[in-house]
Write a protein that binds this DNA or RNA. Structure first.
Lengths: 125, 125
DNA sequence: TCCATTAATGCAACAATGTTGCATTAAAAA
DNA sequence: TTTTTAATGCAACATTGTTGCATTAATGGA
């Protein structure tokens, strides 16, 4: 893997995602950064942070890609958890400790999973 | 609900989705129809077919929206099943009979679920 | 069969999202 | 300090999805 440089944009974006309770979309990040760097740079930084395993991504039921840092997996970084997407306030939250159980037919090799539930979050219920 | 008219575009698109083993994206449908109708019409027809409950939609891990008809839920139309997205051939398949089990914290009200596994399908393994 | 209603369509224009090429800047290591 | 090259900014473009409006045509009733 290529060397990763500790740039301003990268620091800010990582910081933003890490300190957010909910997963953030590219456009939300862009708004927060308020001109700190170019749109394209945000895409590239996100790509890099993903590669480095510092963040992970989810897709909401309506196709919006969101980025989040795990809070409860300091030791072993596992992304096989459920995300909850609130239809009212649009927040996406990691349900870090919920692990779904399912039985797959043979001959499928799973590499990644994306499990998103939509509905109303505790705040909006 | 408004009356649904049985138009050419609607028939073709429904037919296309119903006869496909894998879920189809808007662009895939557009290619198949080969100029039968406008891009916008396809969006609107898909919207209508969703409303009418004739098809359902999933989002792949990389944010591509796909449409599918259920094959094994003639009686009770339930969409709470897993979709498998092959990273090699890009096909998205409904695993109609796999129902995931999970235990959610209180105070979450689930309305919809989207559960997609990515990896290699039997053909590509 | 003809007519009235209005769902559906096509087209143009737009908005949002994501990608690529290239010259320039600036971290990190020597 | 100098060298290397990851990262950036900018322009241009591609893709995806949305909206308004005039026109077309499916459907039900006369």
């Amino acid at each position: 893997m290529k060397l990763s440089r500790n740039t301003n944009a990268k620091k800010e974006i990582q910081q933003l995602i890490s300190s957010s309770k909910t997963a953030l979309s590219h456009s939300e990040i862009q708004k927060s950064l308020d001109g700190l760097c170019d749109r394209v740079t945000i895409y590239r930084v996100l790509e890099r942070l993903l590669e480095d395993g510092n963040i992970h991504r989810t897709v909401t039921t309506d196709g919006v890609v969101k980025y989040a840092a795990c809070h409860s997996c300091e030791i072993k970084h596992s992304h096989n958890h459920i995300h909850f997407s609130c239809l009212k306030c649009n927040s996406v939250t990691c349900l870090d400790n919920v692990e779904p159980i399912f039985k797959l037919p043979d001959n499928y090799q799973v590499i990644e999973m994306n499990f998103t539930l939509s509905g109303l979050c505790p705040k909006c219920i």
